[in-house]
Structures are given as C-alpha cells and as structure tokens.
Simulated scan of single mutants.
Amino acid sequence: MSKAKAYAALNANSALVPFEIERRTPGPDDVQIQILYCGVCHSDLHTARNEWRNTLYPSVPGHEIVGRVVAVGKQVRNFKVGDLAGVGCMVDSCGNCPSCHDHEEQFCDHGFTGTYNGPLLGGENTYGGYSQSIVVKESFVLHIRHQEQDLAGVAPLLCAGITTYSPLSRWGAGPGKKVGIVGLGGLGHMGVKIAHAMGAQLVLFTTSAGKIEDGKCLGAGEVCVSTDPEQMARYAGQLDFILNTVAAPHALDPYVELLKRDGTMALVGAPAEPHPAPNVFGLILKRRRIASSLIGGIRETQEMLDFCAEHGISWRDKRTGAVRVRLRYNDRPMPEPR
C-alpha cells in the first residue's frame, strides 16, 4: 500500500477538502499511473452532494483521468513505464456476463466497479482521480495518443467524450444525417465537436442566445434558441437524431416534435429528478423513439480516443487554445493543496 494526497467530500454539504488515501501495491496485471490531469464532471458534483442518494463517504471524485505510467505488473503486456494512459468511469467488471463478453462492460450484469464510489450494485468504496495516483488493472487502462501538450484537454474525453461519441456512433450521426444537440454544457460541448467531425448536418439547441457564437465556433451549422417557439417550429419533423445532453428536468415533447418519422432522441443527461412524462401521441404517430445511453465499453472508449486524436478533438477552445476549466465546488474555490 502507498499513500496519496487527494481531495474528498466528507458529507453532502461540505466543500472538498485535502485528504489522504491509500492505493494498493500494483499486482501482476495492474498499471500504476501518476495522475497529471483529471476532468471535473457533473457526475462528480452529483456524487459529492449525494444527489443520486448512493454516495459512499469519504468521496474522492474524478473519472476523467490522464497520466503517466510509473509501474506495471509482471503480466502487463500493453503498457510500459513512461507511457501516457487514461482511466475513465470504470475500473472493473465481472468479465463473464453477456455484456462483458460483448465489450459493453458499462452494462455488466453484476454492475461495473466505478472509478470512484465503488461497485454499481454495492461494495467497498473506490477513490477517483482528484488524487496524485491510481492503480488500475490493465484491461481498464486506455492508450492516449494525443500530443502531450493537449493532455489537459484530453481528460474530459474519458467521460464527456465517450458519453456523446457512443450514441452518435450507434445511431449513425454521419454524412447525410441531420442531427440536433440539445444543450451546450459539458456534454453538449463535446457532442457538437464529435458530431461535426463525423460529418453530420448539425443543429444546436440552447436556451442561451449568448451561446450562438460558441456553438457555431465548435462546429454547429445552425443554432436554435429553444425558448423561441418560432425558431423551434422551423425544425419540426426535420431531424434524424437528437442527442439530449441536459442534466436538469425539462419537457421532452418540444424536441420529440422535431424528429422525422422513425427518428430517435437519446437522453444522456442524468437529472436528480425525473423529466416530465412525454405525450405518447407525439411518439406513436411518427414511430419516433426516446432512447438512452450510458458511457461506452473499454473497446469503444479507445475507439473514441483514437477518433478524437485523429480529428484534433479535445476540450480546448478553438479560438483561444485555452482549456475551459473552473475548479469550483458549491460556488466556492477549491482549497489550495497542502
């Protein structure tokens, strides 16, 4: 065992505080990673505040991890000391169920083990990337092929990237498809970039007129302010697919009406309270679907990272080159590390 400095939430109301955790000694199939960057995901906030009512305290969030390999076990074959590596939302699964055999570990019948907050269906706590280091079995470690100067912008791909890439890929958001992205937050930001790179005709829907320029800069061909009924009406029955990234309860019916016959809207936001139930007639009269998606399996996550490396996609702002990061919690700055 080794000690590592970290940031932890000790209860649902406290700010994150400096904390010390123990990491296991690497076993034969383990990779030890010195953490260089960790993204700040909305799931981290949901968990720290216990909004999903399943938090194990103390909670060390962080599942968008990029770092450098500092040790490998004797049986590790695909990583060596000095490699750049990533860890996403999962660090283990049963490996034996149909989902695991299909490389869909996120749907493991026995519940995957989260990078933080323990196994999905209950078990010992795990600690995430708001820390100095992490030890993970090789089969859940990912290769990072971006340039080293981009690493801060690569970290959010490990959750926001795969959460949007997986449904966009599954529902064929490529050339000849008209795709809507709802929301320009953490997920929507990545969804716009990835859908644009896939070649879709892209419409961004936002409640903020101030985000029109941002949306177009990121790759949206058109931007619709969704609070304006006239603007929304222009897209009625026009879209093949909608990726709805909003993580707050909201009416789904206005977006269902934008779908073509046989169109699909996939929900990837995870609100603390349910969305209002949609009007079933808006679905059945056009054979429309409301679907959902989680993250992606390890194989698909590596595919996403390689796609983003090939297309130069990261969290960086195209106009300034800056990485958009604000380390705040409950509207208070993070404390300085000790």
Rank of each mutant, 00 (worst) to 15 (best):
A160P: 04
V182N: 05
N244S: 15
F112K: 00
V17R: 11
V256R: 00
L151P: 05
R261L: 11
V280W: 07
T245E: 04
I290V: 14
D331I: 01
G123H: 01
G174L: 13
S59A: 15
G297M: 09
A277K: 03
E336V: 08
G296T: 13
P249V: 11
I194G: 01
Q149W: 12
C224Q: 03
G183W: 01
I21N: 03
T113A: 02
Q75C: 06
L36C: 06
E20P: 07
E148T: 13
G186V: 10
G114L: 02
A220C: 14
L36F: 04
C89Q: 04
V223I: 02
V31Y: 09
T163D: 02
L36N: 11
D214H: 15
L158Y: 09
F107S: 15
V17N: 11
T25Y: 05
I65L: 05
N117F: 01
G86S: 08
H63K: 10
T301C: 09
G39A: 06
G296V: 09
Q238Y: 01
P156V: 06
G161E: 04
F79Y: 03
P18D: 03
L204H: 02
H110W: 10
G27M: 10
F205D: 03
V268A: 07
I134E: 04
R328T: 15
K318L: 15
N330V: 06
V17A: 11
